[in-house]
Design a binder for these strands. Structure first.
Lengths: 174, 174
DNA sequence: ATTGTCATGTAATTAGTTACATGATTAA
DNA sequence: TTAATCATGTAACTAATTACATGACAAT
């Protein structure tokens, strides 16, 4: 079994107490190239973790901004996390809707396929730019050597696939 | 909305009638680097597609082997597929349990992290080898130019990430 | 005026996973 | 005798998605 939302959130909370909003932010900026999360998953998961006493909630009332809940990992939560992180890793999963469309695109006109390429290239370029932009602030906040590898992996992955995409887009158009 | 099991199976059936077993085989060999499927998904999906009259089932009795069901796409099925393939593509999703472990591995001993690397490298090398081995037979059975791109993409993806992994594995060990 | 930031949540649905169950034939 | 190939399915579960709902403040 691979690490799911539960374990990922526990992992983030091991780095200190956070609100659901902050957890989302960390997920979107630093882990977005190998995990994706939404508020629709984060809040219900925090609720379950609290019910299982793996985290505790501290409610903070604010006047200028909405009230917030700060979650802190408990001893039991740390134990659950330690167990999860020690388990063997499972297979990486890539789901590409673009490649799926391309694979079955035989009846589509060239222009439409060209548009799919254009959109996929834009998306990937944006993701690559976000990741590279993150590097500076991430380094300041203390990026470990191991985290640096996850960053390098993401950069290599986007760079290599973008190259294939750009070359193919040209050959399609001709 | 991206193409799900439903649409993928319809896409495969557009290439001709197939059994669930054959659909699985195509999925495992040609699309495995960007989609994953299991029998637990394939058979229930075929049943639903039949109920919705998007495919028809022909039962074949065999003596030497288990009986089988051959599924054929209907006009309605072709229409549903055409619609799905024309829709805009959605974001690619990568889920890496290995990177997740690595990201949160600060408290794990070097040896354990080294083992994670070793296993991830083996898995990726195996996937790369399978994909390259497929090329020959795939070309014989008529691989289109567009399908060739999905193949190139997979090769580039595995090659680039393997390089990062191997380099990092060395630096970790020292 | 409008967009972005901060901030939390629920309800309904869907899709997929995991585990189980069966069993003959063929090749190494 | 062990593994692989062929071949199909169900039941229970889990995880996540999608869509909805609310709302003030700050910046452009």
């Amino acid at each position: 079994m691979s690490m799911k939302g539960r374990e990922v959130i526990l992992g983030i909370l091991q780095g200190g107490p956070h609100t659901g909003y902050e957890i989302n932010d960390i997920l979107q900026t630093r882990l977005s190239h190998f995990f994706d999360a939404t508020f629709g998953m984060i809040y219900p998961t925090l609720k379950k973790l609290e019910a299982e006493k793996l985290v505790t909630k501290q409610q903070i009332s604010q006047t200028d901004r909405p009230n917030k809940n700060i979650y802190t990992i408990t001893k039991a939560g740390q134990a659950a996390f330690s167990k999860a992180i020690s388990e063997p890793t499972s297979d990486e999963i890539l789901k590409s809707d673009f490649l799926m469309h391309l694979y079955f695109s035989q009846d589509l006109p060239t222009e439409q396929v060209a548009l799919f390429f254009k959109e996929e290239i834009s998306r990937k370029e944006a993701k690559l730019a976000t990741l590279q932009a993150q590097l500076a602030t991430w380094l300041e906040n203390g990026m470990t050597d191991r985290q640096q590898i996850t960053f390098d992996y993401g950069i290599a992955y986007y760079t290599a696939t973008l190259e294939v995409l750009k070359k193919a887009a040209k050959s399609i158009a001709s």
